[in-house]
Design a protein around this nucleic acid. Sequence first.
DNA 1: CAGCGCCCCTGCCCGC
DNA 2: TGCGGGCAGGGGCGCT
Length: 271
Amino acid sequence: MPELPEVETTRRGISPHIIGKKITGITLRNASLRWPIPNDLNEKIQNKTAKSVERRGKSLLLAVANGHVIIHLGMSGSLRIMQNADAPQKHDHLDIHFGKNLALRYNDPRRFGAVLWTDEPLVEHRLLHHLGPEPLTENFNADYLFTRSRKHTQPIKSWIMDSKIVVGVGNIYANESLFNANIHPLKSPQEISLKQYQTLVSEIKRVLSHAIERGGTTLRDFVGGDGKPGYFAQELNVYGRGGLPCLKCNKVLTEKRVAQRSTVYCVECQR
DNA sequence: CAGCGCCCCTGCCCGC
DNA sequence: TGCGGGCAGGGGCGCT
């Protein structure tokens, strides 16, 4: 489920419940995610206090005194706060317990996600060290994109979804941002002007921040335990609308697979 | 090296 | 109603 807005919504949802609380142990039901959940996770974090939950790209970083638990939700992962020890459902692979009446529960049907431990500085971790800027910071701007884009020939859509360039732009919001900025998803990055990058950057920021605001409405779901993501309900201009009329010009929207991802755009509006 | 395709996995929807 | 095929919001990795 998660694009960046949902990961951020999850972070905000779980943080206030667990920060300052002591981890009393874990229940590991299935370690086989994208990489195995380390079998020494319990000894690393037991009796440690959760200091903070930060986000880098789509990874959540649970800090304790001696290191970090890195949590990635993949395509289908979710985290919930459990107020009591409810029976685990299918795909509830891990609980991190904070005493008897509070747990953080990780569920992931497709198991593309990950739960890892690291005691090295986060910037040096192999999953984090290569990452580009956060899209909602000032480091992510038109000059940066324009400069880096010279000589790049792959489709702009794949390029902005590359976490080395910028983190957190997933398939839905890549489609939406390019439509809003009137940029054809197959155009190559080197052909795009500084002015177009200014529009693209502001659309990426706008669409992601808007979704985070809307994500607030799903917050109580994560806490209450009925975790149904809410942002699909929001209005999307192109994603999932292939074959339907463009909301700007009424021409039928094209749907095509680009780098194995469904891509929807308007040949009239996006050039 | 940039760029592309493969693949990890389960669930769901669609057509036959 | 069952079954096969295709697709799903991510992203690392191994080729060329």
